[in-house]
Simulated scan of single mutants.
Amino acid sequence: MASHFLLLALLAMAASLAMATDPTQLQDFCVADITSNVFVNGFVCKNPNLVTENDFFFPGLNHPRNTANQLGVNVTAVSVTNLPGLNTLGISIARIDFAPYGLNPPHTHPRATEILVVLEGTLSVGFVTSNPDNKLFAKVLYKGDVFVFPQGLIHFQFNAGHESAVALSGLSSQNPGVITIANSVFGSKPPISDEILAKAFQLDKKTVDLLQAKFWMNN
């Protein structure tokens, strides 16, 4: 039953992401040559004569992931870097496993809109609009529910239940990118000046230094 639900979710996401944000391909496929030293906006095409069915294949997304970490979450991303056949197709996918009270912390995808379907459990999700409104749109999702996060907006997912939760995420880019807000701000290398962060977040420098030490280690 779970496998049938996973298949239906995949098909729904594929249909919903037909209008992609990445450039449209001009040929049947352009399998990414990950080993190429040529730099372009995306990846150089692999010689079509060397392409095999494995270039379009990624196994095991049905298997639970380990969530024994500080946040209680594990994101298994399937993008062009581990599924080369996605190159130029403007789509990717991710499995997100949540421990009880696990959190996928506030983050953005600079190159993609995200659509999420809950496969198991209960998730509290939301996103925040841009300045000046900064309006929060939040919802509690149950098995089979779908929610969309517009491209570039800060969003989050939290397992509000006592049991583990699983979600499947579709993204409108072969390489959507992710910016985790706390890690980027307090864990940048080299660090942003604590004077700047103290003023930006209305904190004292000691608190900023503690946060930077914490997120520097995480990064």
Rank of each mutant, 00 (worst) to 15 (best):
T35G: 10
C30K: 02
D33Q: 00
V31M: 01
N66S: 14
G60I: 10
G60D: 12
N62R: 07
C45L: 04
N66A: 09
N62D: 14
T52L: 02
P64D: 09
N47Y: 02
N41H: 04
T52V: 04
L26Q: 15
N49P: 00
N54T: 15
G42L: 05
N41S: 06
F57D: 05
L26Y: 07
D33H: 00
P64M: 07
N62E: 15
V51P: 01
F58C: 10
G42R: 02
V44T: 13
P23A: 07
D55C: 05
H63M: 13
P48W: 03
R65N: 11
K46W: 02
T52W: 00
N47H: 05
Q27E: 12
I34N: 10
M19E: 14
F58P: 02
F56W: 05
G60S: 13
K46G: 01
F39T: 15
L50D: 12
A20D: 09
N62W: 03
F57I: 05
N41G: 07
E53P: 00
H63S: 15
K46E: 11
A32S: 06
F56M: 09
N37S: 08
V38F: 00
Q27V: 13
E53Q: 05
N41E: 09
F39E: 14
V51M: 03
Q27L: 03
D55W: 03
V31L: 05
G60K: 06
Q27I: 07
R65S: 13
C30I: 10
L50H: 03
F56K: 01
F58R: 07
D28A: 13
M19L: 11
N47G: 01
T52F: 05
F56D: 09
L61T: 15
F43A: 11
E53R: 10
D28Y: 07
V44G: 03
H63I: 15
I34S: 08
T52Y: 01
D28R: 10
D28M: 08
T52Q: 04
Q27N: 08
E53K: 05
D28P: 01
F56C: 07
Q27F: 08
K46H: 03
F43D: 08
C30E: 13
A20W: 01
G60N: 14
D28E: 14
L61Q: 11
V40S: 01
N49T: 04
Q25S: 12
Q27R: 09
S36T: 04
Q27G: 12
H63A: 15
L61P: 02
E53Y: 08
R65L: 13
P59C: 03
M19H: 14
K46P: 01
P64V: 07
